[in-house]
Amino acid sequence: MTSATQTDTMSIGRHLLGLEDLSAEQIVAILDRAESYRRRMENGGGRLDDLNGVVVANLFFEPSTRTRTSFSLAARRIGADTVDFSAGGSSLSKGETFVDTALTIEAMGVDLVVCRHRTPGAPHLLARHLQAGVLNAGDGTHEHPTQALLDMLTIRQRRDIAGLRVALVGDIRHSRVARSNIHGLKKLGADVVVCGPATLIPRSITQMGVEIAHDLDEILPEVDCVNLLRVQFERQRGAFFPSIEEYAHLFGMTAERVRRARDGLLVLAPGPINRGVELTPEVADGPNSLILSQVTNGLYVRMACLSMLAQQRRQTAARREQPA
């Protein structure tokens, strides 16, 4: 375990674009920082002032309620000012390019930009053009680093991640949550198996160091944790499975399946869940479910990421003012 001082000084870089770019130590540092925010909040800290004077812009180019709310709340809890900007669609539908939109908002004096976009690489494009730090809040089917971090924090509060066997179940092909979880979990030493219909698991994903399974019942007895990914109906461009009923029959997490799994199976779901599809209400509200804990941890993880990026920005600014 990294010592507190190392964690406090660990940098995660100017931007947080994906977990693929981070080392295990950087991931642990974020989780440790999130844990310390949890303790401070639980010990009665209402609004902290770590990020006083910092302005965080939430640029959401894709509809989102949960993630945007979580980021807004996280930023305000640690003293930052927030500005929310939502816009549907892409550059083409607006006439103004996406980069111009971001530059306009940055010019209003923004320190950190939280970006959600339906196109992979959109936050990377911003990072090339903006002075502000960019935090990826989900770019299409690529990465969603804070979601994976909150999933890992939720697991780590109960079990050691190293050596743990985790199943990511469902629509792997269209899931940024899956990609970020794979990068993060592998770096922290977990075994990862992806499970779902063959149409929703690209065969080449094995090159990311994961196993592929298509039979949930076969893998359930040997996993410690299942993360039930939402079926991304909106990203599918054709028939990936015959019917929702058949999907739920083959891959839905039911109470019966939980009974056949290991004791203490951790059940995660990034939400918003389709109740009755990825999991039944009985499981969602049952003793194995960590869904609400994930939501709370999301707040701490986002507080941690924002504060680490703000810290990096302060240090960069200080270096610029005092050339050595």
């Binding site: 892409s90 550059s91 083409l92 390019t97 996406f98 980069v99 976009h117 339906r118 196109t119 992979p120 690489g121 959109a122 494009l125 299409g140």
Partner: peptide, 10 residues
């Protein structure tokens, strides 16, 4: 060049 200064999918 402005046609390329947009998101990858468009």
């Amino acid at each position: 060049i402005e046609k390329k200064a947009v998101e990858l999918d468009v």
